[in-house]
């Protein structure tokens, strides 16, 4: 039995300890906002928060995160999440949208830690999140927009 604390709820799951957190979240807890893109922590579509830090859930075995506070896009709440999603929609950032859960989760973690990120800070935070539609320029603007809204 693995005990996962996801979005404030405790899930006791009879799953392989080696199962990546991504598949536990998607297939066993039923939260599918977190996406599968590469499986090797190269694209960022699977980004969730563990104790507020952005991590790639596709490459973290559940045994390594048992008991820790995991947050997925479904529970992205609070003023920062709200500001980020407001900026994302105001600027129509998403195209296909498949990477955006990860982009949003990475951005929330960035702004929680740094309320006034520079372009270099944004580059550093988001360069691990691929967007094949190349919405990067709008993401950058949206990050600044959200930061201003939070100031």
């Amino acid at each position: 039995m693995i005990e996962l604390r996801v979005n404030g709820a405790v899930h006791r799951l009879d799953i392989d300890p080696d199962m990546p957190l991504l598949w536990a979240i998607r297939d066993h807890i039923g939260l599918t906002g977190t996406k599968f893109g590469c499986g090797i922590a190269q694209c960022g579509a699977c980004t969730v928060h563990i104790d507020g830090q952005p991590v790639r859930s596709c490459s973290l075995p559940v045994s390594a995160v048992a008991g820790q506070a995991i947050t997925t896009i479904e529970a992205a709440e609070g003023p920062v999440a709200k500001a980020v999603q407001a900026a994302w929609t105001a600027l129509d950032v998403p195209q296909c949208g498949y990477c955006q859960s990860g982009q949003v989760m990475t951005t929330i973690a960035l702004l929680e830690a740094n309320r006034k990120p520079s372009d270099a800070d944004i580059d550093a935070a988001l360069s691990g999140n691929l967007c094949r539609c190349a919405t990067y320029a709008r993401i950058r603007t949206a990050v600044h927009t959200a930061a201003k809204a939070l100031a």
Partner: peptide
Amino acid sequence: LRRLDSMAKSSGRMDYTIDVKLPGMLT
């Protein structure tokens, strides 16, 4: 005009084929 799906796509609520769930479904 803004896209109709931006909020769904910014909040993990947009369902793609990978997200289809059916009772008893196998992978």
